[in-house]
């Protein structure tokens, strides 16, 4: 077994009086694909947002690639440039073209020369299947295309870990597949991925392990076979039956 790249121990998070994460622990190995699912408000998004410190955890430890997340600004900068993140609402920068969106961080954070960054960006756009859209603006693209640009933008920093926060939830049904195809390809290429999603087909196909969150805690975890065929907990069974029944 390879060494863990993310180690979380007893992570707690409060929003005011609301206890959003109640002692979450997880170890993720290099190259693993993790799917996190659970009802809304269960803390799954909050949890993956603590990994690149978009949310601050208040108790417990999070160690990413050997660096512990503390208040030290330099650590946070290093970790954020090693972690790519894809959001539910794409969050592309509307004032920049697709190409400019992708090369922004490589040029300003990694200090790459513009031509190198553009060459890498073009490769990535081809990988996600929309090289012809390079000079358009995000507002001119469909939701599925925007999300694929967002994936390319995150990959341009050559991250070691990719976080996906419900990447297909805001998409029209006919566009979900084009985004999932890109994610499946990425998973097969050996990228370490943490994916919050309810796409159980995706989970069955590529997930190494699955985690079921409810009320700020991990209720159950295991391989897709364990979770789908013989879930142990009542809550997992109930939730799965609800989302798989239709």
């Amino acid at each position: 077994m390879s060494e863990p790249i993310i180690v979380c121990k007893d992570v707690h998070k409060w929003f005011g009086n609301f206890h959003a994460l109640k002692g979450v622990g997880m170890e993720v190995n290099k190259g693993e694909v993790i799917v996190i699912f659970g009802p809304s408000g269960s803390g799954k998004s909050t949890f993956i947002r603590t990994i690149n410190r978009l949310e601050e955890h208040q108790r417990g430890t999070i160690i990413v690639d050997g660096i512990e997340l503390t208040h030290d600004v330099r650590n946070i900068a290093v970790i954020r440039s090693e972690i790519g993140m894809v959001f539910q609402q794409f969050n592309l920068f509307p004032h920049l073209s697709v190409m400019q969106n992708i090369i922004l961080a490589p040029v300003w954070v990694r200090k790459w020369p513009t031509d190198k960054a553009e060459a890498v960006a073009m490769e990535l756009l081809e990988r996600v299947g929309i090289p012809e859209q390079a000079n358009k603006f995000p507002g001119q693209l469909s939701g599925g295309q925007q999300q694929r640009v967002a994936i390319a933008r995150a990959l341009a920093m050559q991250p070691k870990i990719m976080l996906f926060d419900e990447p297909t939830s805001a998409l029209d049904p006919e566009m979900i597949k084009e985004v999932l195809d890109v994610m499946v390809e990425l998973a097969k290429s050996g990228m370490t991925m943490l994916v919050v999603t309810h796409e159980m087909g995706f989970a069955r196909a590529v997930a190494d392990r699955m985690f079921f969150f409810d009320q700020g805690q991990i209720v159950e975890s295991g391989t897709p076979v364990d979770i789908f065929e013989k879930p142990k907990e009542e809550r997992t069974k109930l939730f799965l039956s609800q989302i798989l029944s239709h």
């Binding site: 690149n52 954020r80 440039s81 993140m85 959001f87 920068f93 961080a105 954070v109 995150a154």
Partner: peptide, 21 residues
């Protein structure tokens, strides 16, 4: 606010987040 989060998630520091995004 999501724009700011996306920029931070890419590793931009606060000065770059403000001036570029």
């Amino acid at each position: 606010n999501e724009q700011i989060e996306a920029a931070r998630a890419l590793g931009l520091n606060e000065f770059l987040v403000t001036s570029l995004v």
